[in-house]
Amino acid sequence: MYEFKYHRPATVRQAANLLVKNEDAKVIAGGHTLVPVMKQRLASPPHLIDLSHIEGLNAIEMKGRSLVIGATATHADVANSATVREAIPALAELAGGIGDPAVRHKGTIGGSLANNDPTADYPAAVLALGATIVTNKRRLKAEEFFQGLFSTALESDEIITKVMFPLPKKAAYVKFRNQASRYALVGVFVAKRPSDVRVAVTGAGSEGVFRATAFEEALKKRFSHKVLDGITASPEGLNSDLHGSAEYRAHLIGVLTRRAVEAATAK
């Protein structure tokens, strides 16, 4: 790991000022992506700004018809929150399936979204549920936030402060894990929303999370796995690597979408 200077701001405003003042500074919360990458010397930020001691930034609460999760809420916080389990149980289950118990004690929702790893779980939930990502400067819709592999709409002095999830009528997340890394080879989050149905796919796309619109159209007519017969995902634009071909991933999208719809309707 290369040298860096460590900062521990007490407020988001202080953190944002530190970001402006120190070029190439990075924010850190759980550190479960950034620390490994720094150890490999793939990242060498000269300044680290620790958000994990900003009071209230990990709050989870209902605001009107939205579930609001603070950026530094850990995966364990989300998985075990009575508020989340009541409002969007599928989101609590997703958080409880990230990594392992020790990783869930440190990794945060804000960190996962800012990193936008193409195999991360949270991006699928955020896109399918139509969540809004709130930063210190503005509000971003999920579809404008994710901008391809490891890239987001976040500017260099922008910090995610919370994520607002409108409540779906039904939702479920199903992932097919890589047997070695346990990351999602493919993960599908299905949400029946008051106005439409969204199917978001992670792990498969070469540009990161995306919506499977053919499945959405069919499910909009009737939210049942039965309407999905004959609908397939195209392997075009999907990842192909030693873990699975694009065709295999396309097949998994179909299978997992069915399973997710079945799981959502069974709730």
């Binding site: 460590y6 850190i28 550190g31 479960h32 620390v35 490994p36 680290l48 118990p101 020790a102 990783v103 004690h105 440190k106």
Partner: peptide
């Protein structure tokens, strides 16, 4: 429980 190899 946390992984101390990934914690500063």
């Amino acid at each position: 429980a946390v992984k101390s190899c990934t914690t500063l």
